[in-house]
Design a protein around this nucleic acid. Structure first.
Length: 297
DNA sequence: GCCCAGGAGAAGG
DNA sequence: CCTTCTCATGGG
């Protein structure tokens, strides 16, 4: 992987299977905003950057980042060492439904996000819609988070740490408009602090089965089967984890003929047909159904 | 007013 | 073990 430093950012050559719209608008992350030129600016691991991709030249540009940070953070964050071409080929074989879904979101990459941030984000996500989830998380960062400095003419904030959130009160969270999820969040933060932050980090390491990881995650208040699957998938590299939400239920019933509320059957179908790539398959399906144009008659 | 959103916890069988 | 009810909030 060739990385060139241009002073205030870096360019990476020969990046394929990458599209910023697919990556940042497939529901896996909530802290990236699209700029007028099509690039996205956001914050992760305490760094505010801007990401653009040249589809013709296969060049990924990360502004406000160093080559050192690329090796340390961004290479892994964007999952650049995984061969998505081969995975897409395998998933599409003998599955016309998946082939069409992959065509719509061909540049998706499963991000490796911060575990704590992902836990917080998906507790907030429950029974909520994506625009409002983004507002809640941005508000939480601005109210209680840490400053990551000035960039592109404004201040950027990380989410509050577990320690800060564990000491916060419902009144502190009131401006964020989290609704009934606020008390879940405080409860989860207190558990993370009580057991030590390392525990959450350790969960991401190999050695545990995905089922063990999901079970551990479900011990946090506000984390059930679906939210646990998202945390495992989007921050712990468990790409076999298959989150089943209302949208996936729609896809699975419409396209694969499984009864609308039969979550068990959907999980079984995913395990059998998508296997170790269930989470990636799920993202293609999710992207397609959440971006399909309404049919006008 | 209704229904819905990347659901989960609590209560009641 | 299972099913049903409830939980804030804002947009359509």
């Amino acid at each position: 992987m060739i990385v060139r430093d241009y002073g205030n950012g870096i360019k990476i050559e020969d990046v394929t299977d990458f599209h910023v719209d697919h990556i940042f608008d497939c529901g896996q992350c909530f802290r990236w905003e699209k700029n007028e030129d099509g690039s996205y600016s956001g914050i992760a691991y305490g760094r505010a950057v801007t990401v653009a991709y040249d589809d013709a030249r296969h060049i990924l540009q990360i502004d406000h980042a160093s080559a050192k940070d690329f090796e340390l953070i961004w290479k892994h964050y964007f999952d650049l060492e995984r061969d998505y071409g081969a995975i897409k080929e395998q998933l599409a074989a003998d599955d016309p439904v998946m082939r069409r879904a992959i065509a719509s979101g061909s540049g998706i990459r499963i991000l490796n996000q911060e575990k704590w941030e992902t836990l917080v984000s998906f507790i907030i996500s429950q029974n909520n819609n994506i625009p409002r989830i983004k507002k809640c998380i941005a508000s939480l960062a601005e109210q209680l988070g840490e400053s990551a400095g000035l960039y592109r003419g404004r201040m950027w904030y990380s989410l509050p740490s577990p320690e800060v959130l564990a000491k916060a009160t419902l009144a502190d969270l009131a401006p964020c408009r989290l609704g009934y999820r606020a008390k879940y969040l405080l409860e989860a933060a207190r558990q993370v602090v009580a057991e030590g932050k390392e525990h959450l980090e350790t969960l991401g390491e190999p050695g545990f089965s995905t089922e063990e990881v999901l079970e551990q995650l479900r011990s946090y208040c506000g984390v059930g089967p679906k939210v646990a699957s998202c945390i495992a998938l989007f921050s712990m590299g468990r790409i076999d984890s298959f989150p089943i939400d209302t949208w996936v239920k729609k896809v699975m019933s419409q396209m694969y003929g499984i009864r609308e509320h039969d979550v068990q059957a959907m999980a079984a179908y995913a395990a059998q047909h998508f296997g170790e790539y269930g989470g990636i398959a799920q993202q293609y399906l999710f992207y397609e159904i959440t971006h399909q144009k309404p049919v006008d008659k």
